[in-house]
């Protein structure tokens, strides 16, 4: 049940991140290319959710509840980065998010930026939790 909850949350988070990326892309188009229209075929919104779900699978399988730490964890994160990138590229190819290399490059850059942003945000939240827990523990810690 817990893993289903994580899959659901991850799917929502990644789908939102993809929409956010598209939003930023359109903002750039609006200000620098005077391109104000975005037209999508009927299946694109659903393909974003499907991509979100597929991208959440490596996260659940490789990162969450992993009983490894240090270098082995870094290797897992590297594999995760490549796998998720491959899933995004494959979904993009199958659902025609891009057709040429010029259209593929912004998607790839968007992926790297979102990936780094999510890790940075997660790291920041985790470190802030760590600080609060350590401060609270200090108040009740036994003297030995």
């Amino acid at each position: 049940m817990n893993k289903i909850k994580i899959l659901f949350n991850q799917t929502l988070m990644i789908s939102t991140a993809i929409l956010f990326g598209v939003g930023i892309q359109m903002l750039i188009c609006h200000f620098f290319k005077n391109d104000d229209m975005l037209t999508w075929p009927w299946y694109v919104p659903l393909s974003i959710v499907l991509a979100g779900f597929l991208c959440s699978l490596p996260t659940v399988l490789l990162i969450y509840d992993a009983e490894v730490a240090g270098k082995r964890m870094m290797v897992r994160i590297a594999i995760h980065f490549v796998l998720v990138g491959a899933i995004v590229s494959l979904c993009g190819y199958l659902f025609k998010w891009y057709e040429t290399l010029d259209e593929y490059l912004p998607i790839l850059i968007m992926y790297v930026v979102i990936y780094l942003f999510v890790w940075a945000a997660t790291g920041w939240l985790t470190k802030s939790d760590e600080k609060r827990i350590n401060a609270a523990i200090e108040d009740i810690r036994d003297q030995e």
């Binding site: 990162i63 760590e130 350590n134 523990i137 009740i140 036994d142």
Partner: peptide, 19 residues
């Protein structure tokens, strides 16, 4: 009360150093 400090890890778990 025997935990000296905790350290967060990437996968959401924490390592606690005891006294």
């Amino acid at each position: 009360r025997k935990i000296k400090s905790v350290k967060a890890e990437f996968n959401g778990r924490m390592t606690a150093e005891l006294l």
